[in-house]
Amino acid sequence: MRRSISLFDSSRRLRSSLAPARLLQNRSVILALLILVISIALSILTPAFLSSRNLTFVITGMTYDLLLALGMTIVLLLWGIDLSVGSVLGLTAVVTTMLLQDGVSIPLAIGAGLGVSALCGATNGFFVAYLKIAPFIVTLGMMSVARGIATVLTSGYFVSGLPDAYKAIGQGRLFNVPYMVYFALVVVVILAFLLRNWRPLREAFYIGTNPEAARLAGIRVALITLGGYVFCSMMAGTAAIFMTSRLSMGFFQFGLGAELKAIAAAVIGGASLRGGTGSIFGATLAVFLLALINNGFVLLQGSPNAQNVIMGGILVIAIMIDAYRRRDLAED
């Protein structure tokens, strides 16, 4: 007999889930333990690690990846995939900064940038949800289209000369921690709450598990799927705003390769390439874990070549765990 986690937890279940044996089946708990182990090891091996300054920078540096991983988690939950997030980030970065360079007001430029990202997401979502084209194909197309537009718009030039007020968005700090970190944490908490309690996101679990059964159960499969892609792209757009502001420039190559990292983090965090599962806290912890490993690598003077191998290895292991879990489920 297989007991699982219901979408609608009651306190009864919450109590039973705190039993040690069940606790270890929870992906987030495993990730948290891993983070703890790595943190302890790093703080013993290198004094630089446990400084609040270092930890602040680790968290700051992971903010872009986190925003992308959150969006990717929702899309994977819907049994989709979005390969275009990195390119949408690049396009949003270019559009926003070029408008700023031309003297457009800051809110308008940000709005236009986010609008462009939403449009990319809506296009992805429309082709996937309404025209029933495979998400892999659709978003692969968007990946090259968005990057192509970003390239043509800038001819490969860096976009610079941004107003100081804009730079404050990414460079400004509160208690020595950049605003964008607070923003990302608020997104995490709100999204985790909504994923548990908000009906459309609850219905996303059904859609990802069995889209046809979900449709027959009266769930708005197409609309929610569309929404998922729009959200994912807008997370990429938001990351672009922070990145351009923090680095005070726009560049068509921003976000290059970011999609793989986002997928890796979402899958390590508990999402499946086969849809129907996903965890906001899991994805957050996974991004943090990857950032810690990267940070530890630099602090311990690891060779850059080995770093790539290890990151690739982690991705392969995550996908193997996903495949194994699926097989496990199929055998039931």
């Binding site: 300054r53 270092n54 540096g61 950032a291 630099v298 311990l300 003077q301």
Partner: peptide, 10 residues
């Protein structure tokens, strides 16, 4: 930015 920040601290 991320990698160099860590490197300078270490």
């Amino acid at each position: 930015e991320t990698a160099i920040t860590a490197m300078l601290q270490a």
